[in-house]
Amino acid sequence: MRKQSSAIRVAYNMLKELEKEKTRNPHAQIYHRLRQLFPKLPAKYIDSAIYKAKQYSTDKPVVFGGKRLFEKLCKNYLTGKVREKLKKQWKEKRQGTLISIGSKADKVNRLMRFEDLNGQLCLRITIGNREFIYAKVLREPSNNKDKGLTFMAMLLESWQTKNYIPHTVELKLRNGEVYGSVSFEIPTPEVKYTKESGVIAVYTNASPIHLAVAEVSKTGELLSYQTILGLSQNSKDHQEWILAHQLLDIAIQKGKAIAVENLKKLKKGMRRDGKAELRKKPHQWNAKKFLQKLKRVAMLK
């Protein structure tokens, strides 16, 4: 983070100078200079540093670390813990950035890659020549419109089809913890299947199996059904994504839409918050989270 943050500042200053000189192809000159200054920094991090530097406006002066924090630190009356806290915040903003730009030309994001390790989503971060660290991705979707769900659906699809998703990952240091953001293109969903040919009905509160799937004709006749057992604790989240893809494959094969129940309209006992034997099941199965995954996968099929 410190090395690339320094490279971003150098790239920005060089951009300002080369812009005054109206230099053609400034990227090549800046890249060559950064390679000399930061020989151990992977080449893709240098390219990403130049990309990040170009995001800043060269018309106005930029205070890396934040202008307001810098001005506060310049005040003499701030001492002790208050000053140390502000200094830490300023250093984190100034030195705590790491970004890796994804492109369609690359088969994968070479420096920051999402991987599944025993059911836990991790980000593999390159820190040197064939040197990596793995960071656990600790994030829960805020609601059913959360774009993180769409990215997870796209990611799992790419693992299965070996088709790369161009995405950019940026990490930032904040209060001693690392926060990340992912930029990617969301495909426009197309409606391919409707209930005119019948539906694949998904019931997430089946007891004691937890999930039931029924094929229904357009006139409401039951054609077939199957049940699915509960998920293991170790890789529950990953299995839910796999299951969502399996259900979509069934719907596509049958040429039918998927229908799910509205959890908000279920009776209290059926939501598993009224009966003692049903309250234990959310540990094995989370209907709301699974349906969120199912909707996101459906957008991509």
Rank of each mutant, 00 (worst) to 15 (best):
M1I: 06
M1L: 10
S5G: 06
S6K: 13
I8V: 13
R9E: 05
Y12V: 03
K16M: 10
K16H: 08
E21C: 08
R24E: 13
N25I: 08
H27W: 05
A28D: 12
Q29E: 08
K40A: 10
K40T: 15
L41S: 06
L41P: 02
P42T: 07
A43K: 12
D47F: 03
Y51L: 05
K52A: 11
Q55H: 10
Y56L: 03
S57R: 04
D59P: 02
V63P: 03
F64N: 01
G65E: 02
G66Y: 00
L73K: 01
L73I: 05
K75G: 05
Y77H: 14
L78T: 02
K81R: 13
K81Q: 10
V82W: 07
R83D: 03
K85H: 10
K87A: 11
W90N: 07
W90M: 07
E92K: 05
I99R: 07
I101T: 06
I101Y: 03
N109P: 06
N109C: 04
L111S: 15
E115W: 05
L117I: 15
L117R: 15
N118Q: 12
G119E: 01
R124K: 15
R124E: 12
T126N: 11
E131D: 14
A135Q: 14
R139C: 08
R139A: 12
N144I: 08
D146I: 05
K147G: 07
G148C: 04
L155R: 04
L155D: 03
L156H: 13
E157L: 10
S158I: 06
W159I: 03
T161P: 01
H167W: 01
R174E: 14
N175I: 02
N175K: 13
V178A: 10
Y179D: 08
S183A: 13
F184H: 08
P189E: 09
K192D: 07
T194H: 04
T194R: 04
G198Q: 02
I200F: 04
H210D: 09
E215Q: 15
E215K: 15
T219C: 09
L222V: 10
L223N: 11
Y225F: 15
T227H: 09
L231E: 00
S232D: 12
N234M: 10
S235G: 04
H238P: 01
H245K: 13
K256W: 02
V260L: 03
V260E: 00
E261P: 03
K264N: 07
K267R: 14
K268W: 09
R271M: 08
R271S: 06
E277C: 10
H283T: 12
Q284E: 09
W285Q: 01
N286G: 00
A287P: 02
A287T: 00
F290S: 01
L291R: 00
L294D: 00
M299F: 14
